[in-house]
Design a protein around this nucleic acid. Sequence first.
DNA 1: TTGTAAGCGTTATCAC
DNA 2: GTGATAACGCTTACAA
Lengths: 336, 336
Amino acid sequence: MPELTQNQIARLSRVSQATVSRVLRGDPRVNEELRQRVLAVIEKHGYVPDARAQSLRSLRSGILGLVVHRSPRRLASDPFFSALIAAIIEFAGKAGYHLCVDAARAIQSRRAIYEELLRTRRVDGLILVEPQTQDERMPRLLQEGFPFVLIGRYEPTDAVYSVDNDNVGAGRMATEYFIRKGHRRIAHISGPRGIFVCEDRHAGYRCALEEAGLGYSSDLVAWGDFSEEHGYRAMSRLLSLPNPPTAVVAVDDLVAIGALRAAKERGVCIPHQLAIIGFNDSPFCQYVEPPLSSVAVDIRTLAQMATDVLVKLIEGREVPQRRYIVPCHLVERQTT
Amino acid sequence: MPELTQNQIARLSRVSQATVSRVLRGDPRVNEELRQRVLAVIEKHGYVPDARAQSLRSLRSGILGLVVHRSPRRLASDPFFSALIAAIIEFAGKAGYHLCVDAARAIQSRRAIYEELLRTRRVDGLILVEPQTQDERMPRLLQEGFPFVLIGRYEPTDAVYSVDNDNVGAGRMATEYFIRKGHRRIAHISGPRGIFVCEDRHAGYRCALEEAGLGYSSDLVAWGDFSEEHGYRAMSRLLSLPNPPTAVVAVDDLVAIGALRAAKERGVCIPHQLAIIGFNDSPFCQYVEPPLSSVAVDIRTLAQMATDVLVKLIEGREVPQRRYIVPCHLVERQTT
DNA sequence: TTGTAAGCGTTATCAC
DNA sequence: GTGATAACGCTTACAA
C-alpha cells in the first residue's frame, strides 16, 4: 500500500528525486543536512527501492540462477541437491544476491530454460550443475559472453570457469584404499556413460587398478543410472560371477545401498566377504545397516567457490583460475 | 552480444516498435502479413523480451518467492525441503513462474529478508513455510495486501491463505493405529513447543489417547528439537522409566531414527518390545534397519496447492477457500 | 553540492 | 490496423 517511489520521498524531503537516489547509493557529494533529512523520511515511511526499476536501469537483477538437470522427482529425493541449494543460498545471500532455481527437465526444455533465464536477463549469472559430455548450452553461453560457472567439468577444461570435486582422485582414493586392505578383485558400479562424474570416477578406479598391476576388466564394471535399483541389479550380477569381487566402489550412495541390499539378501557378510563404499556421504549413510562408508564430497566448499567465482565474474572482478578442484575425503564406517 | 530490443526488431521488420510489442503479446489487431514479417525477424535473431523491462512496466516479475525458516545447515540435510523445493519448482514452472528461494536464518534477518523480497517487488508473491505461533511477518504482509500463502498454520485460521497437512489428524492416526494394535502405553517424542506442526501432532496424539480412555501423561511426552540426537536422548529417558512405553510416535523421521538407535543400543527388540513410527516418510526410511514406518505427508500435493493458490492470488483469480488440508497416510514398514 | 533530464526496454493509450 | 508517445521507477551524465 505505501507504494512509495523516490519521487514521493523527494517531495516529502523537499529535495529532487536525484538527490534521494544519491543518498541511497551513498554518493559522497550530498550535503550532510539533506542526507539526514532524506534518510529520516525514508526511515519514517519504510521506503525500499523497487528492484525491478533498479535492474532495468542498472542492468543488474541481483539474482543468480541455478539450473539443475534432474527431473523434479529425482531432485526431490537427492540429498546432494538440497545440500547444494542450501549452501548456494547461504553464500549468494552473503554476497547480496538472491537465488533462482530451475530444473531442466527434458532435454528439449533445457534449451528453453536457459534461453529464458539468459536472454531475458532475468538473472545476472548462472551456475550449471552436472554438464554432460556433449552439452549444447556451453557454446551458446560462451558465445554470448554470459557469466556462468560450472559445477562439474567440460572440455576443453580451460574454456569455462568450473568448480569440481576431484572425481578422478576420489575414484582412485576409494580403489587404492581397497587395494591397501588387500582386495584383489574390486568391482565398480557406475552411473550413466557420458556423465563426467561417472567417467572421472571410473577413470580413477581404472588407474588405481592398473598402477597396482591388478589389471582392469570390464566384467567388473557396471554402467547404469543413479538409482538404488541399478545398484541392486548390478550387485546381483556381480555376485553371480564365477569369481565374484570382494570389494565394490559404487558411484553414489544410493547405488551403494542397492548393492548392499543385494548382498544382504544373499547372505553375504559385510564387510568380511564384501566391502562396499559409496560417494557423497549422504546424511542417510549413518542410518543404514551397517553404516555405509563413503567418499565425502565437500558440497559446501563447492557451492562457496562456485558462488564466489560467479559473483566475481558478474562484478567484473578478477578470477585467478579457470578451474577449481575441491578435494574429497574418505569416511570410514562399517561396510569397509 | 545480440543485445536485441524491440526497437531493433522493429527497424529490421520495417514496422513500429509498438507493432512488435503487439505481435509478441498476441494482439489480434495486427495485419497477418506484418505479423509474419515480424515473427520471422524475431525467429531469425532469436529475440527474447527483456524480463526486467517487462516487470517494471507490467508490475509482474514472474517470480515466486519461497522463504524457509531454517539455517542453511539444517536446510541442507532436511529431505522435506528438497522435496518441497523440487515440487514447487515444478508447479511454478508449469504456471509460467520462476522460483526464488531464500532462507531466513536468524530472527533478526527474517524481517530483512521479507522486506527485501516484498517491498522491492522482486517477487510477485510469497510462499512461507513453517510459520511460528507468534509470527511477526503476518500482520505486515496482510496489511500490505501482498499475495502470500502459508504452508502450515496461523491463527486466526481464516486470516490468511494456507495449505497444510492434517497434522492433528496425522497425530491421531498414528496413535490410534498403535491403540488398535493393542498398545496401552504410547509415548510421543515431539519437537519444539510453539511450532504448529508439533503442537498439532501432539494434540492429535493426546486426543486419541483420551478418546480411547488411556489417559494422557506428560511423562510420556518429550519436547525438544528436530534432531536425531533429541530422539536418542528422549528415547533413552523413556526406556529408563519404571514402566516404559511399548510404542512411540516421533514427530519426525530423524527423531524416530534417534529413538531407534537408543532402543537398539539397549537391546530392545523392534517392533516386539517397542514399536516406533516417524513422520514425513523420508527417502531414508526404507534404508534404515529395520525399515521405519512413517506417516507420509503428501509434499507434492502440498506444493501444488500452495503454488496454485498463490498464482491465483497474484493473477487476481478467485480462490474458493482460505485453508486447504492435505491428508496424510500411514506407511507400514518393519518398526510397527 | 543540487536539480534537470535523458534514457533503460517494455506496455498501453492515444490519435491517425 | 498502425505509429507516435507517455509512462513504469530508477541511475547518471550534464547543467546550474
